[in-house]
Design a protein around this nucleic acid. Structure first.
Lengths: 353, 353
DNA sequence: TTGTAGGCGTTATCAA
DNA sequence: TTGATAACGCCTACAA
């Protein structure tokens, strides 16, 4: 390996000079242009490669961020990571992936992060409170900032960045309400998560403001494919005209099931999802959904770390990223087809638009 | 930071002893159990954390692999990365992500890899030959092995691992042929890639062996949603009973378009995709497809690097991973519905099953 | 069985 | 403006 030493020896100058010039900071300015040119030229000729590890060990800072997640093989995590990478690339940092399947071993994870001298750690989609808490403490003891992204735990320490779920539920309601819908079904998977709770809260708050008290059937959960049949039956029985699913996958399943039973989307029932996954636009009808701006989430997570690096005081910070409404063709105005299908179950329907 | 030095000072022993004992190898065995216990206990008490960077700089090897890709936000790359991570975790390595959007700057990338003392580099889905070639040379000069995964360039140096596209095309044909299909349409996006070429070759080879000369209409390419209308028309006109799309996304689009026109899948036309993406099982009908075993691809890529570490001789190695057939409900036996729909365009059809 | 000395490549500090 | 010295944390050879 060609190190600074080789250059110094070749030119017969000190290693100090070589280091200062190659690092290119304010120190390099002090040297004569002639000297600088000679060093740079020699470095080029010898094929010198800067050793980041040596720099990191000396300065005590390694320009690497850790990205911890349960699984990287889903589109959601990929988008967050993409945002993190964008931000780190701009700041000459790089990203290390740490995948902890179901394991929640804080000391072990902290050991990895500290051993690699990470400048900061981002967790995505991990919501085990005691795990997060002890991990935060362990890293904090070494001055390593931790950002929890997309988690749904309430903890009064550390840096947090989440999607604004309440706002998300809000804009879904507004969109559907403006289309004239008054009879809703919320079909949620993972209903126990804070994420789902937030969406529901945002939706029902907005509904309340609009003078609509959600009937019992409007909070309803399903978890697998089989249950989308159940949802379809509930929709038919309860004269529901709009359904909000908390993932695009579930919206997809529901649309397929509805269509199988001859229920048209959006003519008979409007359907919305969440995520704006890549397949949404390929569907028929293309799926209306809300987009979490997950790349922005990742980007901000990295930025929060950059802001914290160097400050050792414990700080509590929480911020959220708003959802964006993505209107496609799976949602439409209500009313055009009432009475044309499934007449019996709809005869008592009020049209309170 | 608590280093070995602190432990040595506290116990009044040499740093050598501490290092040997903590590293836990054969050298540790030489020390008295009593001594070992004392050191381990002190390490625990003081909160000692092993510094990987210092170890790496001393030994010259950093247990980190680089994973380079254009974009990490798609399901394909995520799966490969997942496989890489699995394999690295087993070997106490970790993974660094390097995202190079459209940029193909080999010297810059090599600099990053060398500067971080990476033990090896995996490229996924990058097919620029001159870029790959010079990157290989630059890394090779520093003894860093490079694995090209999923690329489609033919180059006679380095380590290569790809999906067995010919075999993939083969099993698609076999599956459809066994179902009685004789009239095919291949609808490919990115048709210029070696990947697509391989699939086509595998399919047509198998067809030739079965005594079927693919008619002109059997090689047909489309790139966006609008064109799936065109494909649907071609299917109707040419009495096609089975269609193979080279991505699940395109299969999805096609199915949607066909259904919109009242063509039933699989009763009227069988459709296959490639990728086994997550949405496949949520479709109606669930999509039959071929799975590339991308996690296996990533796993093998990492293993190839582990095998090469330490050997500095240039070597050429190429291997491929077979596709797996995933049969769902979008493919079915031909014949049940011939003549029932779209009679005009089908009346001349031969049933040569 | 344990300790000493030296070095990996870099940077910080201080002196010249 | 440049150089000498030391240090970061670890490991390896060799000596005791």
């Amino acid at each position: 390996m060609v190190a600074q030493k080789s250059i110094a020896e070749k030119l017969g100058i000190s290693r100090t000079a070589v280091s200062a010039i190659l690092s290119g900071g304010a120190n390099a300015e002090k040297f004569r242009p002639e000297m600088r040119r000679r060093v740079l030229k020699a470095a080029e000729e010898l094929g010198y490669q800067h050793n980041e590890l040596a720099r990191a060990i000396r300065t005590g800072r390694n320009n690497v961020l850790g990205f911890v997640t349960q699984s990287i093989r889903n589109e959601y995590a990929g988008r967050v990571l993409d945002g993190v990478i964008q931000s780190t690339a701009e700041n000459d940092f790089s990203v290390r992936i740490i995948s902890i399947n179901q394991e929640r071993n804080a000391p072990k994870l902290a050991k990895q992060c500290i051993g690699q001298c990470l400048a900061g750690v981002i967790l995505y989609d991990i919501s085990d409170e005691s795990f997060l808490s002890s991990l935060y403490d362990l890293l904090d003891a070494h001055g390593i900032p931790l950002v929890v992204a997309g988690g749904s735990v309430k903890m009064e320490k550390g840096l947090w960045i989440t999607s604004d779920t309440v706002q998300g539920g809000n804009i879904v309601f507004e969109h559907l309400y403006q289309l004239g819908h008054r009879d809703f079904l919320l079909s949620f998977a993972y209903s126990w998560t804070a994420y789902s709770q937030g969406l529901y809260q945002g939706f029902s708050n907005a509904a309340a403001e609009a003078g609509i008290r959600l009937p019992k059937c409007s909070k309803c959960f399903f978890h697998d494919n089989a249950d989308s049949e159940k949802i379809a039956r509930i929709i038919a029985k309860n004269r529901v005209t709009a359904c909000f699913c908390n993932t695009d996958f579930h919206a997809l399943q529901l649309i397929m099931t509805l269509q199988k039973h001859g229920v048209r989307v959006p003519e008979d029932v409007s359907v919305m999802g969440r995520g704006n996954l890549r397949f949404c636009r390929a569907l028929n009808p293309p799926l209306s959904t809300i987009d979490e701006s997950l790349d922005m989430l990742g980007k901000r997570a990295a930025e929060l770390i950059f802001e914290r690096i160097g400050h050792r005081n414990r700080i509590f910070h929480r911020e959220s990223i708003p959802h964006k409404l993505v209107i496609r063709a799976s949602t439409a105005e209500v009313g055009g087809n009432i009475g044309k299908i499934d007449v019996e179950s709809r005869k008592g329907r009020r049209n309170d638009k």
